[in-house]
Amino acid sequence: MSRHLLKFSVNGVAREVEVPAERLLIDLLREDLALTGTKEGCSVGVCGACSVLVDGVLLSACLLPAFRVDGTEIRTVEGLASKEGRLTPLQQAFIDHGGFQCGICTPGQLMAATALLGEDPHPTDETIKHFMMGNLCRCTGYQGIIRSIHAAADEGAARA
């Protein structure tokens, strides 16, 4: 049972944590770092509640061994808004356009949509549905999520 010292950053803050080999990223975030914005839903990589960005890549924190984040930059939902609390256009759009209901899936939806808009600043409905299909909303509020992503894309265009 080996242990490993990991050096990485979360939302711009440098971190050093020693973990057992089998530690998963979801537990590193929630238990070791008390960053509970990232939710654990299905624990098998299906529901998307634990979506995070590792070096900009969208991944399931419940499926990724913690040792794999050594040397990386992690971004979680806590890292979207500015330090002063200014929301990203995407977060504001979720509020303005009914992008969430109960909220459990919202951190994951936001991280997935952030990754999507990074790749494709003006996604079509089809692109949004294909990219976001791995982020389940148990309230079935999908239309509001799609509206919010379109609104954030328009906002991004307006500011560009």
Binding site: G45, V46, G48, S51, V57, L58, L59, S60, L63, L64, A112, A115, F131, M133, G134
Partner: peptide, 9 residues
């Protein structure tokens, strides 16, 4: 295949 997160990993 599956979802974008799985395909990334």
């Amino acid at each position: 295949i599956a979802t974008v997160r799985i395909r990334e990993q």
